[in-house]
Nucleic acid binder design. Sequence first.
DNA 1: TGGGACTAAAATGTCAGACAATTAAACGCG
DNA 2: CGCGTTTAATTGTCTGACATTTTAGTCCCA
Lengths: 242, 242
Amino acid sequence: MKIDPKNKADLSAQIAKAIRDAIISGDMIVDERLPSESELADQFDVSRPTVREALKRLAAQNLIRTQRGATGGAFVRRLSYDEAYAQQITTSTLLLSMNAVDFETACEARFALERACAPLSAQRRTPDHLATMRAEIHRQAQPGLSDERFCDSDVAFHRALVDGANNPVLSYQLAGAVEAMQPLMNMITFTQRNRDVIIGLHTRIADALEMQNSADADEALAELTAYTLTLGEEAMEARARR
Amino acid sequence: MKIDPKNKADLSAQIAKAIRDAIISGDMIVDERLPSESELADQFDVSRPTVREALKRLAAQNLIRTQRGATGGAFVRRLSYDEAYAQQITTSTLLLSMNAVDFETACEARFALERACAPLSAQRRTPDHLATMRAEIHRQAQPGLSDERFCDSDVAFHRALVDGANNPVLSYQLAGAVEAMQPLMNMITFTQRNRDVIIGLHTRIADALEMQNSADADEALAELTAYTLTLGEEAMEARARR
DNA sequence: TGGGACTAAAATGTCAGACAATTAAACGCG
DNA sequence: CGCGTTTAATTGTCTGACATTTTAGTCCCA
């Protein structure tokens, strides 16, 4: 890790990469303390601010945490699921918004992934998951709910579905896909009639999962996919006309 | 975005957050130039090194790029699919390695996601995708191939499967799941007999996709899942005995 | 001998000013 | 008009310093 060629370009990036590689390769384990900034500066033969910039890069990726004081310093950080979620959501959201991903593509991806969870969720969902789904369905039926709140509840419902598969890796992968869709979903205006259809399908999904009937769940999800796609198309047309 | 309370803690983190929020919310569009470091320092009433640390954080997340020279500066960066892939793979790999995710969980997640792609891939795969799969199958059958190369080829095969769905969002989501599995897969020793079984299933999958028979593809993937899980268990037992 | 307050040290966080390197635009000259 | 030169703007880096935070140790006193 102590290597650093005489490339005069982007010193701080090179240092960050060297340290990052050491962490990823497992040379540095969780909670291990990095050398102090001054020591690193000596090792890499650069100034302290340069080292600091490198450390900030790593901190931005949640790879290290810093702590002040006598026994302080930079420590290799355990990446938690929550942080990984958050990072993935940020990345996915940006990717979708910056690359003009169309509604159809994003929607298709989202529901394809959710349908992958349904069989597992039908097997393993706990009463807790079912209760969450029922609660969100109830919330979605409340009159006067704003479109945004409706979407929030929709996300929470699907999140419960995914979590029901009891596979944290799957939950992590899907968090990005589902939440990143939100800005796109928020462009849709949900009429009462739209909501009734969606609530009906949600109820069918929850029922199917409760009965551990994965075929039914899959069918309802397929219908929900198709219906959401229709709504999206309508919303796009409405936007185009405006 | 110009807000910055008198919290004396973590100035650079606050500044980074302010700018990041401006980008994510869409206040700053792609390729828009940020104020120069000196101007930002004035605006936030901090020194230039502090601003620089904040900018490095953003650069680490691929949110901005910097350019030197007269018309240089920091620009909002378009996040490309490739960069998003890379970021996701890094995050996923770290998450799996740091949180001791067991083989079973990761494997289940990976194949569940792949099975979600199979129906779409059966519909849309191009001759190119099929050719890639066939080529990788051929490579896997070569005698004397190291375990690591075999895994590489396996990843390439599945990558082609996923890309066949012709949905970049799906490809992006799955890249992390599949590639992050590699360190775990690399712990397995693939005997010739193991390889033969896997190659047989790969061939079945490729055949099914060529015939646009998604049911067959799904079945073969299910068998591959089960078989990979078995191999994983054996590898874990072998490790435990050692 | 024990405990509490004080001090010192180590580390990060921040600042100020300076210089180098790079790039593009402005300028001037043939 | 075109091409080379200068110049200005901007990032990249360095040096040195001070502020802040936290821990460890020391010293004094009961």
